[in-house]
Nucleic acid binder design. Sequence first.
DNA 1: TCTGGTCATGTTAGCGCTAATATGATTATA
DNA 2: TATAATCATATTAGCGCTAACATGACCAGA
Lengths: 330, 330
Amino acid sequence: MADVAERVGVSAMTVSRAFKTPDRVADSLRERIQAAARDLGYLPNRAASQLASARSMTIAVLIPSLTNTVFIDTVAGIHQVMHPEGYQILIGVTGYSGDGEERLLETYLEYNPDGLLLTGLGHSAATWTRLRGLAIPTVHMMELSDRPDIYAVGLSQIEGGQAMTRRLIERGYRRIGFVAAQLDERTIRRGEGYRRAMQEAGLYDANLELLSPEPSSIGFGAELLDRMLAQAPDCDALFFCNDDLAQGAIYRCRRLGIAVPDRLAIAGFNDLAASAWTVPALTTVATPRFAIGREAASMLLSLLRGKRPERTCLDLGFTVMERETTGTRT
Amino acid sequence: MADVAERVGVSAMTVSRAFKTPDRVADSLRERIQAAARDLGYLPNRAASQLASARSMTIAVLIPSLTNTVFIDTVAGIHQVMHPEGYQILIGVTGYSGDGEERLLETYLEYNPDGLLLTGLGHSAATWTRLRGLAIPTVHMMELSDRPDIYAVGLSQIEGGQAMTRRLIERGYRRIGFVAAQLDERTIRRGEGYRRAMQEAGLYDANLELLSPEPSSIGFGAELLDRMLAQAPDCDALFFCNDDLAQGAIYRCRRLGIAVPDRLAIAGFNDLAASAWTVPALTTVATPRFAIGREAASMLLSLLRGKRPERTCLDLGFTVMERETTGTRT
DNA sequence: TCTGGTCATGTTAGCGCTAATATGATTATA
DNA sequence: TATAATCATATTAGCGCTAACATGACCAGA
């Protein structure tokens, strides 16, 4: 920077201003500075800028997994909003673990992020304590909170699970199973919604639930279908906690010659890209992941600018997509 | 840091050493320093560390898209190697554009990354020039290079396309179409491989190629299938440039009542997670994306440590996975 | 003509850390 | 016991930038 300043014959401060607050430098001078910077191949040093200004122009995003498209879609939404504003995203991967999140948060705080985007609300006690002591704006994604001191953008996972289950009940299904893997916070809540809907209809039966802590995948969905059919051979519909599992189940039914939805209806959660295209097309709960990322980023941006957002909690809802893997039970 | 030093009664330098080079501080003292740091909630400031040491412990990774799982898998591999070594990854999204990459590279250089991981070799002239002038170790991912001054980890996209096409020819297919979207560097090369194989068998016909610049998706694969059938109704096999398109084609065939592979064989590229599970299961070229990320990161790590890797170019190959969407033409 | 305001630019100091070097204490060797 | 080598810790200076304030030029209005 000093070189550029010398070349143009101004002080370093003026060069700094020419980059950060161009309107506070005379037009002609600014152009000369920019030309000199280009000639010399000068690029500002972010670390120095950060150190001097106490702003990092960086936000830390903590997600459970890099390979689950649900979170990548969210990150893409965040990126879309933050990148044009000059903010850099640091992605931390917690591996669905509270301890992992705790350690990562510590690591990422060393980068002095200006803001924090966290997944879910099920943080460890230590994480919550640390967050409370932090002066960094934080927005929680994917779920809803009624606490006025917490910023959240998401949807009610419980109501999502409940809505899908109710819809299946309306369609005449009675022995509706719930099949879940991974068992993170959101999965548990979808199960809770399922349970409420079944109980309010007087249909609840613990034997219709199959929960596994193993990671979700299409292949594992196929396996869980087998297990569920063994556990509750009389089930007439299966609600999978996510679309990966449900897609695996569809393929497995096809192999086994199980008619979907006539013999067995299948429903998923998330509405992944492939779900509208499988044969039969998957009935699922569409979640606005990309919008969650966008809106969470926008909310964080407001906070970074010192504005209070209108709402502390933004509910982006969900949509039950009835496709071909469910029908009407007569 | 000064607070911690004062509390323990040592100099700031000793606190710094206790964190960065723990073995150069006496055991008991180190423990007291760590205890004091914990008490005071001290976390090192990376920006200051970076400024003072001229090392950012950061590497910039430029990928074309965040939503294409191919690149995310690669990033996951990079992350797996780099995270335990204390390196932070900065992800830049070029949007499949050379200009985008050029601008991003400039932006990311402001962070003074210790290393660079770029996708492909088809960078703009300006990017190549800039890279040459840079003292930052750089590894190119996904493709191969025979230039001794370039580090690359990947596979031969041309040979991948050629191998699959040859296999189809061996299986008796004669009117093999090539269907591509997105038309990035890798797609073009796969097409080149297809063309070589068709030409060497004397089967090449320009009318069997369908290239579209639009982004790939399952839905677009379905549409391209329709277009291809209109363009070359006599085709007996279709080689899609990636699995998204191929999966869309499988579903579309199912809807149209086209027997796969009897009336029409289908092949893809990449071997995405779902491809082994579709019905019929997709014949495709499996690419070691995760390993590419891991190995590229390892190679970069060697370079960062001042070691010359044994090879400048690491070929991780590919595997033709013959599944159910192709058979034998009699 | 003077006063006060506005604007463009300059000066000073310091952000939090670490490289390089200095210092002093301890240990090994002759 | 003297000397050198080794180790643990301290001191100094500076990484590249920007906040805060200072300066001086210019202009409007009385």
